[in-house]
Amino acid sequence: MMRRVVAKPEVCVGCHLCEIWCVVAHSTSKDVIKAFLYERDGNHPRITVEENLPETLAINCRHCDEPECMASCISGAIYKDEEGRVLHNPEKCVKCYSCVMSCPYGAIVISENGDIFKCDLCKDLEYPYCVRFCPNDALELVEDSEKGVLG
């Protein structure tokens, strides 16, 4: 069963709270104030809200069945785990940004420090924080075993 985060632009309010909570989810403390004001660890949101008002849409990794980013990764830093999640191993990453260029959705982001960040579906948490804290249910966690359901 593959889990994916699906964005629903028709109810996205453009608040960017998914970005905020993504940082919290990947922080050491998992506390919103500490994560932003005290833990200066170069953390960066892995989800990006794109705006062209009134349209707003959260861009996030689709965890493709055949990921372009993985195919283009020259160092083997991007891999697919046994549950189907497309993950990024920073220790192997050489920051060539091939993945950034090859991702058809623009879902892989480069932080201010030049590091690569991508969605890991909050693998260490029970539930992805972006979905849990979206105030308008504009992000939904779907579990679908069907191939290519999201294109």
């Binding site: 309010v13 453009g14 608040c15 960017h16 709270l17 970005e19 905020i20 919103v32 104030i33 932003f36 004001l37």
Partner: peptide, 13 residues
Amino acid sequence: EDRCIRCRVCERQ
């Protein structure tokens, strides 16, 4: 100020 993380959600909303 000890709580504001400058996320600008207030501004957008």
